[in-house]
Computed example of a mutant assay.
Amino acid sequence: MSDFLVVGGGVIGMLTTLQLADAGHSVTLVERGECGREASWAGGGIVSPLYPWRYSAPISRLSAWSEGRYPELALRLLEETGIDPEYRQKGLLYLRVDEEAAAMAWARDLGKPLERVSADFLYAKEPAAAPGCEEALWMPTLGSLRNPRLARALSTRLQAIPRVTLLEGCEVERLEARGGRVDAVKTGRGRYRADQVVVCGGAWAASLLASVDVNLPVRPVKGQMIQFQAPPSLVRRVVLMDGRYVIPRADGRVLAGSTLEESGFDKSLSATARESLWASATRIVPALADCAVVHHWAGLRPGSPDGVPFIGAVPGFTNLHVNAGHYRNGLVLAPAATRLLVDELLGREPIVDPLPYRLAGPLPG
């Protein structure tokens, strides 16, 4: 029996497992499919909320802590696995922002570099950006990751740690509880037990907790994206305009996203979404109209009522915990969200106040 059993092999589940293993604990990670192939794979990899000044303080606190950890994490994984997550700190350009005062106030409060820049600065940084902009907002410290490679690097690292048991293609059917304690996790391949159980099931977290009569207000929210094959350096950094964005990769590929769709667990693709994404991407960078769209996909974000994730002990249970509901910011918040929960699990001083992320209800006595 392991010290910990983690349900869900996305970035949240894998980082939780890695931190627990780093602390010397045995961990079983159970994933219904392939690790990192759901929301963690489908997102864009921007290491910041899109418009960070629109978010509440609990999200800003986690985001600020996380952003500074990704360079170190990317280097560690590259050294340990040979897989490069391609962390790129090239900054972000915001075009046509109509809430500049709020953005600048947010930046001052957090000590975050953000400045208004001229057209000359904008087009020196991004010559192919939408023409006719007289100014932009510039966040020089923003980074991005190639999230599928981050997920592959994390999975590869976990497989090399002897005290980690990684079970892929192992769907959890239900949690089995008695007397305020989870006795076992029932899967299609049998029952697994651990001293402590952590649910990191993303959009599926609510159904997992429902098996022990816990109501977790997390729902799937579909997002579709497309990818262009562009010449290297056509787009050099993340550019955001009118709620849509383009994200360059080192090999010239450019991601464009994304939609927000309330359609349950349906991940089907639509021509309407593809056309909308193509139109917004070619407004941001008109030269993308001459580039082929080589991929179109969808993923399911774990939506929560106000975007603030649920992190901590599940009320009424002595050994059940959750880390889910990160909505559009799972990758952004992952280092801090997982560290916060691991601190709680191991009795360490938390990095931020854990109260805003707790599930409502009395904790077990």
Rank of each mutant, 00 (worst) to 15 (best):
A184K: 08
E262Q: 13
G82N: 10
D343H: 11
R88C: 08
S66W: 11
D3W: 06
T156C: 13
D120Y: 08
D290E: 15
L255P: 02
F310C: 04
N215M: 07
G312M: 08
P127N: 11
D251M: 02
D290L: 08
L122F: 02
S63E: 15
P217H: 11
A177L: 05
A105G: 09
V314R: 09
E99V: 03
A21S: 14
L208I: 15
R189T: 04
R328P: 10
I247K: 08
D343G: 13
P362S: 13
R76Y: 14
P162V: 09
V199H: 02
V199E: 07
M14L: 12
R152Q: 15
S118I: 05
G45F: 11
R191I: 00
A313P: 06
W278N: 04
G36W: 02
T28A: 07
T156I: 00
R32M: 06
L331I: 15
V218Q: 06
L110I: 01
L209W: 12
H25P: 00
I311R: 04
N329Y: 01
Y357R: 09
E275F: 13
Y51V: 10
D343S: 15
Q227F: 00
A230I: 01
P71M: 07
A324P: 06
G82D: 06
G312E: 13
V164G: 02
A210D: 14
R37I: 05
L142I: 15
K222T: 04
R283W: 09
R237A: 03
L166F: 05
T81A: 05
Q196N: 02
L333E: 10
K90C: 09
V342H: 04
V172I: 13
L50S: 10
R328G: 02
G143V: 02
R348H: 14
T318I: 03
E349R: 15
R116S: 13
A206M: 09
P232K: 10
P309F: 11
G347D: 12
G188F: 00
D98T: 11
G24F: 09
E344N: 00
S207R: 15
G365L: 12
A360N: 07
S280A: 15
P113G: 03
L359M: 15
L122M: 11
T81C: 07
S26H: 04
Q159R: 15
W138A: 12
I351N: 02
P286G: 11
A64G: 06
N215S: 14
A205N: 06
D109Y: 00
R178C: 09
L167W: 08
R163Y: 00
P248H: 03
